[in-house]
Design a protein around this nucleic acid. Structure first.
Length: 655
DNA sequence: CTGCAGTGACTTTTT
DNA sequence: GTCACTGCAG
């Protein structure tokens, strides 16, 4: 964003002191700057740090905010409470754990642990426990927990209770609990509520349009109707409705906070006028919105290009050629000035192939996360077990890797014993009364883990981690299970990355429990900011980012807007998604569609998306339909420029 | 418990 | 067309 002066609307949003405020922040309107400046203003006004809380949805946003405040305020920023909703929930759970039948070293169950827990519940209840049922019930329990399921299903309630009880027994919570337990806490303990209301005397919420019903309830418990609540959001960028985000939370604020003051940030510092006009006139077709028109500061710019290609392969090659051309004519400095966006991830493949063929470096965002890798899960299983001995799932994963000959049979006997003794599986291993064919193996395992735990707590951080890899024979197992030397190296590198995190965390004075919490709440993609590569990602993943050159591919009927979304009556959300995609572009925006789209090995005839017809056509150039246009001529000039550039390079190489 | 072959699904996914 | 998961045989 240009300049250091705040514009009038930004100034108002930063310094307003009259209570609840809604900041409607359009794309590229300096939203993060407004939030950080507002926090800085509070600090400079001598509001105690402990009375300020800022919540975001992603770690990335929280991190960015913290970094900016650090630059702005120096070390004073350290003591500010800036975190995600879930991290805030976790700190409440930890602080008041005893009121929730938990301990402060509580485990956080995500994905696979939730599945294991649910599978175990269903098996115990003698219900079908195949993967489909586990997924279905987890989904329904989650809906139930989030108040999104009205039907009274007796069975479901019982399953939920059993699932919750199991998690409680293992001193664990799932992601839903990180919001629900704090809500329970705040609504049933006045003193706790008063404590946190004081800590949220100034509460700022980012990306408010993504909040769910539960998060709304959470916010309400933290701020009274005249409180200093600042919510920043953009109804036009609400794209997570399918996941429970309720855009109406934004519309409803006025009712719940009658003195609500609304500020609109409509000055855009990102995109050219052409791009904004296209985006504005597209989103104007939505009925459910508060209304906002972005104004550009950057001049007219190039028209938005629309390309037709015969098929996906051609679409890819053409984009690859164009990227080279833009770079050759110095419209871009580096590969990372380019981004290719798509509605569905299967569209990335032909683009990848084309970029590779053109020797253009690229990076696909999303995909497997660091923490989903088997070697990381295995290593973490040991750490989790040491961090929370009640975590039976961690125990089961740890004892199975590497193989110790302890199979399902031995585990179920151990489970029975633990049940009778009312202890965890891990404690059962070390129990004096344990009599079992494998009790020697189990005891040895228990003592080994205890020994490493002792090192982790009292020893040197690096020794402890190495002991973990060595004494458990994890490293040997990881290497043995790898298909080849390269894979073994890669896997161990991942583990070493985890080791570095652990060392850094210990240097900062953190303990094992906080390390695990950090790891489980950290998004896998925190550090994924690859430099010098063309970025490929879904539109959802692109929210909050910006690029000089953006290509939106697959802008076809049935794909974008997506057929399933239309069936579920979510055309407006699809339009917002397109709006988000378009407003990522700073300088040049290109939208492409194909005549024949290959999918599942079949070829389907397609028609261009209605989202290409809705924008003001005067800022669009349908290049293929208008070969004599200025833009088409320009393209030819650009193509000539690449040929020249390539020829020159070839000459240089020849010398 | 492991490895392979057959089967089915395929929109987006923070924490 | 590809991948991931299931189920059966070894």
């Amino acid at each position: 964003m240009s300049g250091s002066q705040l514009n009038q609307a930004q100034y108002e949003a930063v310094y307003y002191r009259g209570g609840p405020m809604l900041v409607l922040a359009g794309a590229g309107s300096g939203k993060t700057r407004v939030i950080t400046e507002r926090i800085a203003a509070l600090v400079e006004r001598d509001v105690p740090h402990d009375a300020i809380t800022a919540v975001t949805f992603t770690n990335k946003a929280a991190k960015e905010m913290r970094e900016r405040l650090f630059k702005r305020l120096g070390d004073a920023a350290k003591s500010l409470r800036i975190c995600t909703f879930h991290a805030l929930g976790l700190s409440m759970v930890r602080e008041h754990a005893e009121l929730l039948e938990r301990k402060s070293n509580v485990s956080i169950f995500s994905g696979s642990e939730q599945k294991s827990a649910m599978r175990s519940v269903l098996t115990d209840m003698r219900l079908p426990s195949d993967a489909d049922q586990v997924d279905r019930l987890l989904g329904r329990v989650s809906l139930l927990k989030n108040g999104l399921l009205d039907v009274e299903e007796n069975n479901l309630t019982i399953v939920r209770e059993a699932y919750d009880a199991l998690l409680t027994r293992m001193n664990a919570v799932d992601f839903d609990d990180l919001m629900l337990l704090p809500i329970r806490l705040l609504s049933s303990h006045r003193d706790v509520q008063a404590l946190w209301q004081a800590r949220c005397r100034h509460l700022l919420v980012d990306e408010y349009q993504d909040s769910s019903r539960v998060q709304y309830a959470f916010i309400h418990l933290l701020v009274e109707s005249k409180g200093n609540l600042t919510v920043v959001g953009d109804d036009d960028q609400s794209i997570y409705g399918w996941r429970g985000a309720e855009i109406k939370n934004l519309f409803q604020l006025e009712e719940d906070f009658p003195s609500l003051h609304t500020v609109r940030l409509e000055e855009n510092y990102r995109s050219t006028h052409s791009i904004l006009t296209a985006a504005n006139t597209l989103i104007a077709n939505n009925g459910e919105r508060l209304g906002k028109t972005l104004r550009s500061n950057l001049g007219q710019g190039k028209p938005v290009r629309i390309w037709e290609s015969p098929n996906g392969d051609e679409e890819g090659h053409r984009i690859a050629a164009d990227i080279k051309a833009r770079k050759a004519v110095a419209e871009a400095k580096g590969w990372d000035d380019f981004c290719v966006l798509y509605r569905a991830s299967f569209l990335s493949r032909p683009i990848e192939i084309a970029l590779r063929a053109a020797s253009i470096p690229y990076h696909v965002s999303g995909g497997l996360s660091f923490f989903d890798r088997a070697e990381i899960q295995d290593t973490l299983a040991y750490l989790r077990l040491m961090g929370n001995p009640a975590d039976d799932l961690a125990f089961m994963r740890a004892i199975a890797r590497p193989r110790r000959g302890v199979g399902a049979k031995a585990l179920s006997l151990l489970g029975e014993f633990a049940w009778k003794q009312e202890c965890s599986l891990f404690e059962a291993c070390l129990h004096d009364d344990l009599e079992h064919r494998l009790s020697h193996t189990l005891r040895e395992f228990g003592e080994m883990v205890s020994g490493i735990e002792h090192l982790l707590i009292h020893g040197e951080p690096d020794d402890a981690f190495d002991a973990l890899l060595e004494r458990t024979q994890l490293e040997a197992a990881i290497r043995a299970e790898a298909a080849d030397e390269d894979e073994a190296e890669r896997r161990m590198n991942n583990v070493m990355e985890l080791r570095r995190w652990w060392l850094r965390h210990r240097e900062d004075g953190g303990d094992l429990a906080s390390f695990l919490h950090h790891v489980f709440l950290a998004s896998s993609k925190d550090d994924d900011d690859p430099e010098g590569q063309v970025r490929l990602m879904t539109v959802h993943a692109a929210k909050g980012l910006e690029f000089d050159h953006v290509y939106i591919i697959g802008v076809e009927d049935g794909l974008f807007p997506h057929k399933n979304a239309l069936e579920e009556n979510r055309l407006e959300e699809e339009r917002r998604l397109m709006y988000v995609a378009m407003t990522r572009a700073r300088y040049r925006l290109t939208m492409t569609y194909v005549r024949v789209r290959s999918r599942y090995g079949t070829k389907e005839k397609t028609t261009p998306s209605l989202f290409l017809n809705e924008p003001d056509q005067s800022v669009l150039r349908w290049v293929d339909k208008d070969v004599n246009s200025e833009e088409a001529k320009e393209e030819i000039d650009d193509a000539m420029a690449i040929f020249k550039a390539i020829a020159e390079k070839a000459k240089k190489n020849a010398r």
